[in-house]
Amino acid sequence: MLTVLLVEDDLDLAATVVQYLSLEGVECDHASNGVAGLELMRRQQYDVLLLDLNLPKLDGLSVCQQLRRDGNDTSILMLTARDQLQDKLAGFDSGTDDYLVKPFELQELVVRIKALAKRRSGQTRVLRWADLEMNLDSKQVTRAGRPIKLSPLAWQLLEELMRAAPAVVAKAQLEQSLWGDDLPDSNALKVHLHHLRKALAGADAVVETVAGQGFALRGGGH
Rank of each mutant, 00 (worst) to 15 (best):
V63R: 06
A165N: 00
T3A: 15
V35D: 09
L38K: 11
A36V: 07
Q123K: 14
A170Y: 07
S94M: 10
A203S: 14
Y46H: 08
L150S: 02
L38D: 01
L193E: 02
K57Y: 00
T142R: 05
L2R: 15
H222C: 14
N187K: 00
L23V: 15
S121I: 09
A199R: 09
A188L: 08
S75F: 12
Q66F: 07
L200T: 00
L136E: 03
A15I: 14
Q140S: 08
L150T: 04
P103N: 01
E8P: 05
Q65A: 13
A115M: 14
R146F: 12
T3E: 15
Q123R: 12
C64G: 10
W129R: 08
L100W: 08
G219L: 09
S151W: 03
S32G: 01
M78F: 02
D9H: 06
L193F: 13
V206W: 01
Q140K: 07
R163M: 06
K88Y: 03
D73A: 04
L153D: 04
D204T: 00
C28N: 06
P184D: 04
V4G: 08
E108S: 09
D87N: 04
Q156D: 03
L2D: 11
S138D: 13
A164S: 13
G202H: 07
E24N: 12
A31L: 15
L183W: 00
M1L: 05
T209P: 08
T209V: 13
D59T: 05
G221M: 01
T74V: 07
D185P: 02
L136N: 01
C64A: 13
V206D: 01
M78V: 03
L109R: 12
G202S: 01
K171V: 12
E159I: 00
E39H: 13
D98C: 03
S94D: 05
H195K: 15
G34H: 01
F92K: 02
A14S: 01
Q44N: 14
V101C: 10
N72K: 11
V168F: 09
Q173F: 03
D29M: 05
Y99D: 03
R197T: 09
P184L: 06
S75H: 13
L150H: 02
S151N: 02
S177W: 12
L67G: 01
D131L: 00
L55C: 03
G34D: 02
H222Y: 13
L67A: 09
Q66T: 02
M134V: 10
V101G: 07
R128A: 00
L55M: 11
Q65Y: 10
K139V: 07
L158R: 05
Q140N: 11
Q173I: 10
G180D: 03
A115C: 14
E27L: 15
L38I: 06
W155M: 07
R146M: 07
D10R: 07
S151I: 02
M162Y: 02
M78E: 01
R68L: 06
L100A: 13
A170G: 10
G37P: 11
W155E: 05
K198M: 11
L158F: 02
L189H: 04
A14L: 06
L100F: 09
M1P: 11
F104A: 05
M162E: 00
M1H: 12
L161K: 10
L106G: 09
M162H: 02
E24S: 12
S32Q: 14
D59N: 15
G145C: 04
R218K: 07
